[in-house]
């Protein structure tokens, strides 16, 4: 057994790896290895490095970090290692938002007005937030964890069904939906990247201030109450942060599986830490995870590109499976 890493050391390591990944990502693309210092002389190569690869790599990192953060919050909030950021219906809400948007404006000639300019990403974000709100209404607030989980599952299934219906009813929607469901970092530009980073900073700050609540919650709800934690508003805020992080990530990159679920597990496998650290570490791990998957997606079948959502599902799923088999063979719990 190796000596357990200190959270501080690990976070530094993860941050450095992330930075290295972004640097690598700006030099590696589907047109092959092309370091940025060689691209200085050619405007198109420069545009590719500066306007495509860099925002994309940075955006992938920030988006992955948001999913990792939301995953850590979800698992802490629900005290359930299987919880993931999409649990409260945000993924199906985002899909429905996109489907509605596409069926209203997709290829139609009426495309004008502010709601069109809001675009697909806006529709996905609004859909995700509305779905979480619906879950909260159905669960009659956040007091009851089980009710919240059930409401989340119900909202997910029902909104998923409505999306399927729209796909059937307006077949031209289906094509656009496919692209969204695949999940891709390929369309992230500077605007999206800045947005992702800004929301990430806000979410991390909020999550860190709430970390003590999660620590108290891990001792059980009654203990948390007796410690003087204002449970209801704290939960509401945590759910809000989760919805904001997930909604923003999904809106910019589509559905990306398993990053939010696997990142906190990865962190827990390496260190034992308070929620403050584990939230931060999960964010860093999530960022690194999605960025690595993105780099792989660019390189594996270059010059073609794999949808990164496919890769994260395979990688994250494989990792969790491996963890699970180790857990059962050693007979220890999560």
């Amino acid at each position: 057994m190796t000596k357990p890493l200190k959270p501080g050391v690990l976070s530094l390591l993860l941050a450095l790896l992330g930075a290295a990944g972004v640097a690598l990502g700006s030099a590696m693309g589907s047109t092959g290895w092309e370091p940025w210092w060689q691209a200085l002389h050619d405007p198109v190569s420069w545009q590719i490095v500066w306007d495509i690869r860099l925002p994309r790599s940075l955006g992938a990192w920030a988006g992955g970090a948001m999913l990792g953060l939301a995953g850590a919050l979800a698992q802490g909030l629900f005290r359930n290692p299987l919880a993931d950021p999409y649990l409260l219906g945000s993924a199906s809400g985002a899909s429905l938002g996109v489907a509605i948007y596409l069926s209203l404006f997709g290829g139609s000639t009426l495309a004008s007005g502010w709601w069109v300019r809001l675009g697909l990403t806006g529709a996905a974000f609004v859909g995700a937030v509305l779905a979480v709100l619906l879950t909260l209404v159905l669960a009659r607030g956040v007091q009851h964890t089980l009710r919240l989980l059930l409401a989340g599952v119900i909202v997910g299934v029902v909104l998923g069904a409505v999306t399927s219906f729209l796909n059937l009813w307006r077949p031209e929607v289906w094509q656009g939906m496919q692209g969204f469901m695949l999940g891709s970092t390929g369309f992230v530009g500077w605007t999206a990247c800045v947005l992702l980073c800004a929301v990430l900073v806000v979410c991390v700050a909020l999550a860190l201030t709430m970390a003590r609540v999660l620590d108290a919650l891990s001792l059980g709800e009654n203990t948390a109450l007796s410690l003087g934690v204002p449970l209801a508003p704290a939960r509401m805020l945590l759910v809000g942060v989760m919805a904001m992080a997930t909604g923003t990530a999904v809106a910019q990159m589509g559905l990306i599986a398993f990053v939010g679920l696997a990142a906190p597990h990865l962190v827990r496998a390496v260190v034992r830490a308070t929620h403050g650290w584990s939230v931060l570490l999960s964010a860093l791990a999530g960022g690194l995870l999605l960025l690595s998957a993105d780099l792989l997606a660019r390189g594996l079948i270059a010059p073609q590109e794999m949808p990164v959502g496919v890769l994260t599902a395979v990688l994250g799923g494989g990792y969790l499976l491996w963890r699970m088999s180790r857990m059962t063979s050693t007979g220890s719990g999560a």
Binding site: S30, T31, I48, I52, R53, Q175, G179, E305
Partner: peptide, 15 residues
């Protein structure tokens, strides 16, 4: 080949 309609490879197109 620069990807498909659903997943055009932006970088390859620009290149």
């Amino acid at each position: 080949r620069l990807g498909g309609g659903l997943d055009p490879n932006i970088e390859l197109v620009v290149a």
